[in-house]
Design a protein around this nucleic acid. Sequence first.
DNA 1: GCTAAGTTTACCTCCAACGTAAATTTCTCC
DNA 2: GGAGAAATTTACGTTGGAGGTAAACTTAGC
Lengths: 211, 211
Amino acid sequence: MSIETTGLREAKKRETRQLISDQATRLFMTQGFESTTIAEIATAARVATKTVTNYFPRKEDMAFDHQDAFVASLAETVSARPAGESVLGALRRTFEAGVAAQDPVIGFAGPDFSRMIHESPTLSACLRTLHDRREEALAAALAEATGSSPDDITARTTAALLAAVHRVMFRRIQELTLAGRTNDEIAAVVADEAADAFGLLEPALGHYAVG
Amino acid sequence: MSIETTGLREAKKRETRQLISDQATRLFMTQGFESTTIAEIATAARVATKTVTNYFPRKEDMAFDHQDAFVASLAETVSARPAGESVLGALRRTFEAGVAAQDPVIGFAGPDFSRMIHESPTLSACLRTLHDRREEALAAALAEATGSSPDDITARTTAALLAAVHRVMFRRIQELTLAGRTNDEIAAVVADEAADAFGLLEPALGHYAVG
DNA sequence: GCTAAGTTTACCTCCAACGTAAATTTCTCC
DNA sequence: GGAGAAATTTACGTTGGAGGTAAACTTAGC
C-alpha cells in the first residue's frame, strides 16, 4: 500500500517517461544530440520507438525535462515577492540565491549538459524558445502585478529588459562552464557581474511595481 | 555587353536563387510553411528538388532572404553613428526613421508575411535566432565602440537591453499588423510606445558609449 | 474473473536532409 | 569558333524524424 496510491498505471507511466528521458540525455551527452537516433534511445530504454515519440513528440523535449519550472521561474518570483519589494529587487534577490545554490535553473547545468546544448543548433534554438516563453510568462506576471491588461506594452518591455539580464547571465554561466571553470569560481565571477547588470537597471526600474 | 559583366553563369545563379526564393515565399504565404513541400517549390520554380536544397540547405532560409541585413542592422547603426551621439540615441533615431519609412527591417513586413511567420513554429524559432544573432552583432559593435574585449560582459548586457527594445517593438508591429491595422495606424501607435521604451533606458544608458 | 479503458507496440506513409555520380551548361584557351 | 575544363543542375538512393492506425497487451473497476 503506497502512500501516493495514484494507481500502478500512472506510476509506470512516470517511470517509463523518466527512463526514456534519462537514457536520451545520457546518449545526447556522450555522442551528441544530432548523432543520436530515436531508435537508439528506444533500444537503450527497451521500448518501441513509437513509445518514445508518444511521450516526447519532439526529440529535443527529451533533453529539457524541467522546462515548465524554468519557464515559470521568473513569473513566480514576481508573484511571490513580499510586500514592499520591487520586481527588480525580487528578481535580483532570486538570482543571487540561485548563484549561492549553484542552481541549474539559472545556468549551472554542468559541463556535459552545457556542451550538449552548445554543440547542437537544435537544442540551442530550443533553449532560446524557453527563454522567450519565460519572458512572456514574466510579462504576464508583471501585467498582473501592476493591474494592467495582459498585453500591456510597458509590462512586456520591462519583462524583456529583466529577462534579458537573466538570459545573459545564464549564457555567461554556460560559457564559463564550457571554459572549464569550477562552479565556485563561476559563482564568484557571476555574482559581481550580475550586481552590475541589475544595478544598471535600478534607475530605470527600481520604482516599477513595488508590491 | 552588360555593365556588371560577372559572367552569364553567376547571373543565372542569382536569378535561379531569386526565383526559388520568390516561389517558396509565395507558396508559404498562401498555403502555410509546414504544408508546403520542397517538391512543390521545385515544381513551381521548374527546377529539380536537389537544386532547391543546393541553394537553401534549410527550408526556412527560403523565407528569410535578407537575413544578413537584418542581423547587421543594429551593429551598423552603432558603427556609423556621428561623433557625440550615444549608442542609445543612435538606435532610437534609427528606429524612429524606420517607423517613418515603415521599414520591413523593424517589423513592417505586411499581413501575409507576418501571418506566415506567426503560424509556423519553425519560422518563429528561426526569427528568434535572427534576433539573437542581431544582438550578438550589436554586442560586438559595442565592444568595438568602447574599446573593450569582444566578449565584454557590460557590452553584452547593454546589447541585450537595447536589442530587447527593438525586438519587443518588432513583435508589436507584427501583432498590430496581424490585428488588421494599417501601416499608418501602426506607425502612430508604435512611435509613442518606442519613445517610452527608449526613454526608460535613458537614465541607465544615456551616457554609455557617447562616440 | 470479466469487461472497459488506457498503454504499448508493429507497420505504415510522408518529407526534409544529405550523398553520389551522371548530364548539361558555361567558361577559357588555343 | 571549337575543344577541353570547370561548375551547375539533375536523377537516384539512403537515412531519420514526425505522424497515423489498428492490434496486442496491461491495468482498473465492477
